[in-house]
């Protein structure tokens, strides 16, 4: 077996060290090693977006990132979105608009929407649908998600 590696990453603002095998994905390590189970596994092949996290500022699907690649990186997961337990405006908007049913896709949608609104605080409906095209939801039919993001727009742009 390939030697385990010590990886040091800044996860949600906290310098974190973990041990992993080169073959483990970032998704696997977040969930199984670090007990950060907010990030979900849907397809494990990059298609559904449920595992979306931020890696050095960019949204990525963590099932297609090796955990060893996170060495020295900044990682932001859904657990970092509501520090202290106060819901992020996007989370509140998802609740207000009933933008979730089973909830498996929700952490991915929140992470991806957060990246969108920081890049583009006033997205059109088309911008939202386009930016969220890599996130799949089997329950809501997407309309409520789009409305939630519209409601939250303006709340979390970088000022």
């Amino acid at each position: 077996m390939a030697k385990k590696r010590i990886v040091s990453a800044n996860i949600n603002g906290k310098q974190t060290e973990f041990l992993c095998e080169p073959r483990q994905t970032l998704l696997e390590v977040l969930r199984d090693t670090l007990d950060m189970t907010g990030t979900k596994e849907g397809c494990s092949n990059g298609n559904c977006g449920a595992c979306t996290v931020r890696l050095d500022g960019r949204p990525v699907v963590s099932c297609l990132v090796l955990a060893v690649e996170a060495d020295g990186a900044d990682v932001e997961t859904i657990e970092g979105v509501a520090p202290g337990g106060d819901l992020h405006p996007l989370q509140q908007a998802f609740l207000n608009n009933a933008a979730l049913q089973c909830g498996i896709c929700t952490p991915g949608f929140i992470m991806q929407s957060k990246c969108l609104l920081e890049e583009n605080p006033n997205p059109s409906e088309h911008d939202i649908r386009f930016y969220l095209a890599g996130n799949l939801c089997r329950c809501t039919g997407y309309d409520k998600i789009v409305r939630a993001v519209q409601e939250a727009a303006g709340c979390c742009g970088k000022s």
């Binding site: 990059g46 977006g49 979306t52 949204p59 990525v60 699907v61 297609l64 990246c115 890599g134």
Partner: peptide, 9 residues
Amino acid sequence: IGGIQIQSR
């Protein structure tokens, strides 16, 4: 090529 997340990498 893919969606935004794929294009990041």
